[in-house]
């Protein structure tokens, strides 16, 4: 069976929402039932919201079947956003480890290369340095926000 021919974007997203709603519902029910000794519990309101979400999601799902079938979503458009997400994920993980300056420089450089792969490396380095400097100036210098600094590994008592 070719799934691409029987589903479309609307159906796919409604299925993803269905999974999310179900996971949240299980978590809510695991915390407490909606009513305890006839009184409403902390999960009462979230469970009402989740029930309404099921209803809205089913309506979207049914509407999706009435729409034109065929998954015509061009996966190649996801190439750059995927790279942006990967680079951002790495940035988050190295932000405190190698400090703000180096991590932000690498992040900005990577993003510039994702947006403009043909841009000259020197120009990209200069732009990344300027972005890092601007963000540092804005947060640390002007508004006094303490940003993480480099934490070099301690080897034999010497940094």
């Amino acid at each position: 069976m070719n799934f691409k021919k029987i589903i479309n974007g609307t159906i796919l997203v409604s299925i993803i929402f269905f999974i999310i709603i179900t996971v949240f519902l299980f978590e809510a029910l695991e915390t407490a039932p909606p009513l305890v000794n006839g009184k409403i519990s902390p999960t009462f309101f979230p469970i009402i919201v989740l029930s309404l979400m099921y209803f809205a999601d089913i309506v979207i799902f049914i509407k999706g079947f009435k729409e034109e079938k065929g998954f015509d979503f061009d996966l190649s458009t996801l190439k750059h956003p995927t790279w942006v997400v990967i680079v951002s994920f790495i940035y988050i993980n190295i932000f405190k480890v190698i400090g703000f300056s180096l991590s932000t420089f690498l992040y900005a450089f990577s993003l510039i290369m994702i947006f403009n792969p043909k841009k000259g490396k020197i120009k990209a380095v200069v732009a990344a340095l300027m972005i890092t400097g601007t963000v540092y100036l804005l947060f640390e210098v002007i508004f006094g926000v303490r940003l993480p600094t480099v934490h070099l590994p301690k080897i034999g008592g010497i940094y």
């Binding site: 951002s88 900005a108 993003l111 510039i112 732009a127 890092t132 947060f139």
Partner: peptide, 27 residues
Amino acid sequence: NKGVLYSSIAAISMVGGYVSTYSVFQM
């Protein structure tokens, strides 16, 4: 230049996420 503009926005956004609680979890 779009790359430079959006890279700046990305850096400000990410660091902005950090400063609310000084936590990379928020990022």
